[in-house]
Design a protein around this nucleic acid. Structure first.
Length: 573
RNA sequence: GACUCUGUAGCUCAGCUGGUAGAGCAAUUGACUCUUAAUCAAUGGGUCGAGGGUUCGAUUCCCUCCGGGGUCACCA
């Protein structure tokens, strides 16, 4: 990168980098730095009575500096938090040469540098636990200034809040906004809790293909890609359900996977094109068993995170203590609309939609219509965890028909805070029925429902060999994390949420300028001056350009030899 | 996709009805041996998102585009 692209502060830091090298200090040393304590350990375990922690080796990022002549304070931040350091000139530089303090510490170190310190812990007159530094070493130089966030008495000043920058440059967000790290630590804890519970029960964690020839297991638009060697399309999975069930056919009796799934659909507060789902399948169980299991799992996660079952979500308080209310979809619709739709056909359902003001179109079948009604009138009412059970068969092509009513399926969704959190079935294991359902989906797809599924004939073949009765459940890990961390947006629980790419202004390549006979050193100057395209250059008068170039050279002290006025005229012709 | 708000210094933000920009922090230089949003003094730093239009003159008004936020729609 050329120097004129850099801000003043970046230039100063690069100059500091060179000065450090001139002093024989490697700003990026290779050797291991053996730390023996964390910031949090110092703060929680230091006891001035003993005193302990008298030979600490600590490393972290320099987050603030308060220089007062011969002594200085600063703060270092490691993974666990911040600790104050105290540096005294004559202790760090016992001899005559005070360069290490006066130059290196006071001038050449910047906020953002990674620094290692050796010393002992004490408590200052102001009561702050502090490392009294006897030696320090630069571990990594930062040449780009960090946003400086300050805090006093719980109030934050100049907080780094721009959502775009926070998500694009998550590393900055993590450095500067400590609460952000908490969310992601909790996310990991949620996943670990679930994994522990499954492993305790002997279920097997597996991995299934992300690149699938047929994107099955859910009705969603897939991302498509191409495999060159096989010269065939491949899809990024929208679900892993069909593969996990193949494993149940193969004799595993409990399998689960934390699965990154991909759906080529809209993005908003609750949707990211790639997202994480945990799916689990257990043989010889049904959806009633799975409801008990799901309750236990979620309650366990809530307690592990918060020590209690009741947690704040937005302006509400949600209690994850089991058991959760269970209500059938028909009862729910009756409760919230006053209509009993259990015996209705497509025509009657359209009539209901009309009466209660639910939008619909003629491509919608019975299942879709019921789903629309539920989504519009019922879903949002379930703030406390509630199982909605017994969905119509048209909406659930992978789910076993209800033991008491062939129009329904043995399916439940867990609704929390007005949104779907889990989805589970007594899995359909009748191969003939499964093929019929797939074909019905295909008919719907031909009718215009572009979310209807592809048919996976190998999956049907697997079922033909026989799959034990099985119950399966899927849960959105991102949404669960949002609930458990009280986050409003999915972007707050994804380390790197999907963003539009950063766009740079359109510009011509350097070659185009060189072709005009412009020396390379002046090309970057022209670009910096705003002539991003050769065509723009052609529109200015040579005299003006000549003046501007010389002026720019002088003003920015580039030290270049000015071109002759004639040269400039020649460039433009 | 629709509506709406928004883009000014490294960061957070001011900038009235049009006259090419200010503050705090950060930075630079100096003072200061227990400070903590350290303090004090001085200094530098900006194609005011991009392009076009109106105008003698646009950061400001109008249009288009680009980026971002919010709401809604779409998305079991």
């Amino acid at each position: 990168m050329s120097n004129i692209e850099l801000s003043e502060q970046e230039l100063i830091r690069r100059a500091s980098l060179q000065k450090l090298r001139d002093l024989g200090i490697n700003p990026y040393p290779a050797n291991e730095f053996k730390v023996n304590v964390t910031a949090n350990q110092i703060i929680t375990t230091f006891n001035p009575e003993i005193p302990n922690l008298q030979e600490v080796v600590f490393a972290g990022r320099l987050m603030s500096q308060r220089i007062m002549g011969k002594a200085s304070f600063g703060e270092l931040q490691d993974e666990t938090g911040r600790i104050q350091i105290y540096v005294n000139r004559d202790e760090v530089c016992p001899g005559e040469d005070k360069t290490l303090y006066n130059e290196v510490f006071k001038k050449l170190l910047d906020i953002g540098d990674i620094v290692g310190v050796m010393g002992y812990v004490f408590i200052t007159q102001m009561g702050e636990t502090t490392i009294h530094v006897k030696e320090f070493v630069l571990l990594s130089k930062s040449i780009r200034p960090l946003p400086v966030v300050k805090e006093k008495e719980g109030k934050t000043f100049d907080a780094f809040t721009d959502p775009e920058q926070r998500y694009r440059q998550r590393y900055l967000d993590l450095i500067v906004n400590p609460h952000v790290k908490e969310v992601f630590l909790k996310r990991t804890k949620i996943i670990n809790q679930m994994r522990e519970m499954f492993n305790e029960r002997g279920y097997i964690e597996v991995e299934t293909p992300i690149l699938q020839p047929i994107p099955g297991g859910a009705a969603a638009r897939p991302f498509i890609t191409h495999h060159n060697a096989l010269n065939m399309p491949l899809y990024l999975r929208v679900a892993n359900e069909l593969y996990l069930k193949r494993l149940i056919v193969g004799g595993f009796e409990g399998v689960y996977e934390f699965s990154k799934d991909f759906r080529n659909e809209g993005m908003d507060r609750t949707h990211n094109p790639e997202f994480t789902v945990m799916e689990i399948y257990v043989a010889y169980k049904d959806y009633n068993w799975m409801m008990d299991f799901t309750e236990e799992m979620i309650e366990r996660v809530a307690v592990a995170l918060h020590g209690m079952t009741s947690i704040p979500v937005g302006d509400k308080e949600i209690d994850f203590k089991r058991p959760y209310k269970r209500i059938t979809m028909f009862d729910s619709i009756r409760e919230h609309t006053g209509f009993d739709i259990s015996e209705m056909d497509e025509i009657a359902l359209r009539d209901v939609c009309q009466k209660i003001g639910v939008e619909f179109d003629n491509t919608m079948g019975k299942g879709k219509l019921i789903d629309e009604i539920f989504g519009a009138k019922c879903e949002g009412n379930y703030i406390q965890p509630t199982f909605i059970t017994d969905y119509p068969v048209e909406m659930s092509p992978l789910c076993k028909k209800h033991r008491n009513n062939p129009e329904l399926t043995e399916r439940f969704e867990l609704m929390v805070n007005g949104k779907e959190l889990c989805n589970a079935y007594s899995e359909l294991n009748d191969p003939i029925d499964q093929l019929d359902r797939f074909q019905e989906q295909l008919r719907l797809s031909e009718k215009g429902d572009n979310e209807a599924m592809f048919i996976d004939m190998d999956f049907v073949r697997a079922l033909e060999y026989g799959m034990p009765p099985t119950s399966g459940m899927g849960i959105g890990i991102d949404r669960l994390t949002m609930l458990m961390t009280n986050s409003i947006s999915i972007q707050d629980v994804l380390l790197f949420p999907q963003m539009k790419p950063e766009k740079r202004a359109e510009e011509d390549s350097a070659e185009k300028y060189l072709e005009l006979g412009i020396p390379a050193e002046w090309v970057e100057v022209l670009m910096k001056m705003g002539y991003k395209k050769v065509s723009q250059l052609k529109e200015v008068k040579p005299g003006k350009l000549f003046n501007d170039l010389c002026g720019f050279n002088k003003k920015n002290q580039l030290g270049l030899t000015n071109p002759a006025a004639n040269d400039v005229t020649n460039w433009l012709n």
